[in-house]
Simulated assay, not measured.
Amino acid sequence: MNILQVNLLLLFIYSLLLKFKKKNLKKLFLFLMTTQLILINGLRSMWIGTDTNRYFRYFNEVRSFEKISSLFDYNMEIGYTLYQKAIGLITTDFNVFLLITAALIYIPVAFFVYNYSKNFFLSYLLFITFEFFAFTLSGIRQSLAISIGLFAFHFAVQKKPKFFLFAVLLAISFHTSAVVLLMFYPLINVKLNTKHLIFLTLTYTAFFIFRYRIGALLTIFYYDDRSTSMIQQYDVSSGIGGVSLLLILLVILSLIFQNVLNNNDRVLRASFNIMIIALFFQTLSAFSYLFTRLNMYFLILIIIFVPNIFQPISTQKIRYNQKQLSFLKIVLKLILIIYFVYYYQGILEIDIDNLLPYKFYWQ
């Protein structure tokens, strides 16, 4: 059993704390999970994670700069460059850098789950099995931007546009692709209806028809001078159809069980709206990996969307007696858990992020 499987197993063990439904035990669960993820991330060898060795080189280059002008001339987002320099003033140890970075990634996740999820276990199950955790071990800049994006969601839900804009700009300063977070505010604050869904379906169809042209344009923006090689590398990717089907199923279930279009739960409606956009990007991901990367800003919301669909299940649209409702909830959870674990095992076997065999930095 490798450390990533142990990580998942410990999640199941920690979930026993949640059975007592006590606030302090919920906080203990979050503390244990956050600490565990930080240690796995921060104590790894620089050869664990596809891009980790590159980030090691970036860190050493930036911390050696003596002139401020060198920081602004460096070919990388200024926010991340200044962040590296700030940590470099404290330590020259790359693993200390990784530990601090991991904390800045996973603590916002814990904050997000604590405030918006109705089932902490399912939230972390999704975070681990849907490649979000694996991605943080390789895509450091974008992972930081995604975590900042969780605060952007929080401020959008709270209707604090100034704080929202600040969070988005900060995320962009770590990874320019975070510009898509600007979509959060209108998405979260609009109440979709049936007409909107029909319009979105037609829009998706148009995007699908012109997918290659759109993909090429966005790839140029996303990868800049490497755009031509990236288009050739990522064009016509495959293997993500199951995620699209899952998103379609979740959207349908949210309409059935939570009557989400008429539901007064602002967070549920907000995450529903974002999942609609995530479904769009995930569909385009079949033709360009670029959209998979962009979609992570939206798809991360699945860690609260799924728990909030199934626990508790609303009876606004379909009436069940208590025994039927309890049985349905158990069946749905079991199916989801089995699917997520099975999906995760497949990801580990492919190991596209170069995480296995896992090694600590001292090995």
Rank of each mutant, 00 (worst) to 15 (best):
315 T>A: 00
129 T>R: 05
68 I>G: 01
221 F>Q: 13
139 G>M: 09
115 N>R: 12
163 F>Q: 15
204 Y>W: 14
96 V>Q: 07
185 Y>Q: 09
256 I>W: 05
24 N>Q: 12
308 N>I: 00
296 M>Q: 10
169 L>G: 05
161 P>L: 08
12 F>H: 10
186 P>G: 04
80 Y>S: 06
310 F>W: 01
5 Q>W: 09
237 S>W: 05
198 I>G: 03
157 V>Q: 07
229 S>Y: 11
136 T>R: 08
11 L>N: 06
335 I>R: 03
158 Q>L: 13
131 E>L: 13
1 M>Q: 06
68 I>E: 06
316 Q>F: 08
303 I>M: 12
162 K>A: 13
335 I>N: 12
95 N>M: 06
152 A>E: 06
266 R>E: 14
155 F>N: 14
126 L>H: 02
120 F>K: 05
7 N>Y: 11
152 A>W: 07
323 K>R: 11
196 H>Q: 04
287 F>R: 04
103 A>L: 13
12 F>G: 08
241 G>R: 06
294 L>R: 05
344 Y>F: 15
346 G>A: 08
61 E>S: 12
84 Q>T: 05
301 L>K: 00
247 L>D: 04
73 D>V: 00
203 T>Y: 13
132 F>R: 01
187 L>Q: 06
350 I>L: 14
36 Q>P: 01
154 H>L: 02
269 R>C: 10
117 S>V: 04
113 V>P: 00
166 F>G: 05
109 V>D: 02
25 L>M: 14
33 M>P: 00
189 N>G: 11
3 I>N: 08
